[in-house]
């Protein structure tokens, strides 16, 4: 089988809260192949942690189920798909809103999707009631050479302007 991606991996684990750290560390280790900065890696870890926690608390409501993560690398972009077969989201639009939570009693802040959206470039949410939820997130890792090149260009520009 020839993959259309440069690399891909799949991970399946039980919806136990001690797997939150396992999931984010594993995806971060996989993403490390793109040579991200520490900050980019922290962004990915945080977004994965939020998505997996959502599967556990909301999808399965703390009962046991399977959570699946599929991550693919293509050029300098990572795509992470996190899905559960849980109860689904009634109103995705509402769930995306900052501070909106259905679990205020658990001291949840309602910032999960907001954090995913601001730490990743793109976030798609697909959810069907009683079937499950799939979150697809993408992030481009900026190549170090590009960053340096841009900095150089800016310097040149500034030199011209001055």
């Amino acid at each position: 089988m020839k993959s259309r991606y440069d690399n891909e991996m799949e991970l399946e684990f039980l919806s136990k809260s001690n797997n939150e750290a396992f999931a984010r560390i594993t995806v971060a280790a996989f993403a490390a192949q793109l040579d991200p900065t520490i900050e980019e890696l922290a962004d990915i870890k945080t977004a994965v942690s939020e998505a997996v926690t959502n599967c556990i608390i909301h999808g399965y409501e703390s009962t046991e189920g399977l959570i699946k993560i599929k991550a693919t690398l293509l050029k300098n972009e990572i795509e992470i798909e996190i899905s559960d077969n849980g109860k689904g989201i009634e109103n995705v639009e509402l769930a995306r809103k900052p501070l909106y939570t259905t679990k205020g009693d658990l001291e949840r802040s309602g910032m999960g999707f907001t954090i995913m959206e601001s730490f990743m470039d793109e976030v798609e949410i697909h959810s069907v009631l009683d079937i499950g939820t799939k979150v697809i997130m993408r992030k481009k890792i900026k190549k170090q050479e590009d960053v340096e090149e841009n900095a150089e260009k800016n310097e040149e520009k500034n030199a011209l302007i001055n």
């Binding site: 942690s49 926690t53 658990l106 001291e107 949840r108 802040s109």
Partner: peptide, 13 residues
């Protein structure tokens, strides 16, 4: 070394 939004709920509480 790491904190996600669960930390926000913790601090607010």
């Amino acid at each position: 070394s790491f904190m996600d939004s669960a930390g926000i709920g913790l601090l607010i509480g």
